[in-house]
Simulated scan of single mutants.
Amino acid sequence: MDLTYTEEEEDFRARLRTWLGGALHRLPPKPSPDDWPGRRAYDTTWQRMLYDAGYADLHWDASPTQRLIFLEETERAGAPYVGANFVGLLHAGPTIAAEGTGAQRERWLPPILRGDEIWCQGFSEPDAGSDLASLRTRAVRDGDSYIVTGSKIWTSHAEVADWCELLVRTDPTAPRHRGISWLALPMDAPGVTVRPLRTLAGSAEFAEMFLDEVRVPVTHRIGEENDGWRVTMVTLSFERGTAFVGEVVACRRTLGALAASARASGRWDDPVLRRRLGRLHAEFGALWRLIQWNVSESQRTGGVPGTGGSVFKLRYSHARQELYDTAADVLGADSLDLGHEWTLDRLSSLSYTIAAGTSQIQRNIIAERILGLPKPPKGGG
């Protein structure tokens, strides 16, 4: 794989950089982290600006290098990331593009790209997190609809979402990984109740969701009935393979800011700290190369990231935690200030070895699907 950029790609970078230089000045002030309606409006405004400028579909319909250039340049310019749009743009949208019918793609993809509709993720349940196949939310077929009953937890951005990518059990007699279906749930449907959850950092981007005999049209099912586990693996491959790309660029920027802060505070004379920063610099450089490889592989195999996404997710989760542990060391006593961005990022980093599949799950995937190791015996370690 050629990791260099062509003259045409560098021209794309230059045009994007020029557009960003003018567009960012037109954005309204960033809202408070607790103002979710305001955050939704801010994020969708930015998405509409991208759409009008022809950059909205770069997550899906661009070459691998164009996608990476777009993420590099928007992050370096300090542009907003996907924000409240992330489930639609990085999970549901690519899944519908890969697995949906023509009518489904026409219905849902343009509003996602324009920023007209926000999606949330309804996968995890109180008793089905890492062991997602044990989910219990039921969907019973009733004519042209499913009647859905159950509950979900850690539902990202549910309080401002229009749609939910929802996993349900449509055949309770089938083996655990079968009998599951992937539905597009309208969040304003009768019977849907959302209760926000407050995190350690004081934010409320997650919620509990309760479903009391909610009717969902059969036409909102993505893929065949009872084939939802396979469709879910497509969703999770996007989540683990490409959804964190912009964050790696942000971490590399943070690393540079950490080095500058260490120099300003006199901590740069500490050889142990310099070694940590140097190792993290190499770590995130390697992660960026891994992203390039994964994106190129996904393009070669039809646009769906493969198991290399688990390698990336595993290492990135731990590297992010190491980065913000180092930031706490540089900040010293200021690392206890919840008003400092790095402190909030450190608290957030604790979730990364759990979110989007725990590190234990990623190790199992790598062992079984990449290294070809046997599965552990049932009931054994």
Rank of each mutant, 00 (worst) to 15 (best):
R138F: 05
G332H: 05
T353S: 14
G54V: 09
D2H: 13
D43P: 04
A62Y: 02
W288Y: 04
S349C: 09
A23D: 03
C164E: 11
I222T: 13
Y55Q: 10
M209R: 01
S349I: 07
E159H: 08
M209T: 10
G357Q: 05
A355H: 11
I112W: 00
L109T: 03
T74V: 15
L185R: 00
Q360N: 14
Q299N: 11
N364P: 00
P111N: 05
D171L: 04
R363K: 14
T199F: 06
A97E: 12
G285Y: 03
L347N: 01
Y146H: 12
T235Q: 12
L20G: 04
T173L: 06
P172Y: 12
R363S: 15
F86K: 11
A133V: 09
D11I: 05
R136D: 00
I370T: 07
T6Y: 04
D227V: 01
A14N: 15
I180R: 08
K378P: 05
S296R: 13
R369L: 14
G202E: 02
I222M: 12
L166N: 04
G256T: 06
H177D: 12
D35M: 06
S181H: 08
K152G: 06
P374E: 08
A259P: 02
D337H: 15
I291Y: 07
A189S: 13
K378D: 01
R136N: 01
A260F: 02
F123T: 00
L347C: 06
H281P: 00
C120L: 01
A286E: 13
L16G: 07
T301K: 15
G150Y: 00
V148F: 01
